[in-house]
Amino acid sequence: MKKPEAVATVKRRRDAALAAIVGQIPYIKFLNVSFDRHGDELTATMAYHDDLIGNPMLPALHGGATASFLEVTAIVGLTWVSQWEQIEQGELDLEALQGGAISLPKTIDFTVDYLRSGLPRDAYARAVVNRSGRRYASVHVEGWQDNRDRLFAQATGHFLMPDQDAKRT
């Protein structure tokens, strides 16, 4: 039987791939969003800061900040799922991944459902890829704050997948 890989090797490979995907998108840094990984499951966190506020009288998170957070989570989640096999097979050259080597899906449409007002504190989100074909993908994202069961927003988006054939030539 083949000896299982050392846990440190597995973690290093997966974390490097995730960091490469996230690190190439400046807007993720702008929003102060980070990703926690447990196996293949990603949870996004948008750390609270005052620049995320829309209505200062409530105060509540700006609907646009919430939409951006969910869209970023969907794009990273979809890229992660679609690259997972290659990451696990060690096919991705992690050294070469800096600066946009992983092509990103393009948003076709994105619909945000605002369920309650976003509180001035950290927000979390997870994406589920409901369908990922060669050309199109459908992704659902749930966002919450204090309680996982009390969503403050959810979204569904359709995405155009990067051209895999074009990338290999």
């Binding site: 939409a67 076709i108 449409d109 994105f110 619909t111 459902d113 605002y114």
Partner: peptide, 9 residues
């Protein structure tokens, strides 16, 4: 406050 917003790119 926004209830729902759909964007087409």
């Amino acid at each position: 406050a926004t209830l729902d917003l759909r964007i087409d790119y």
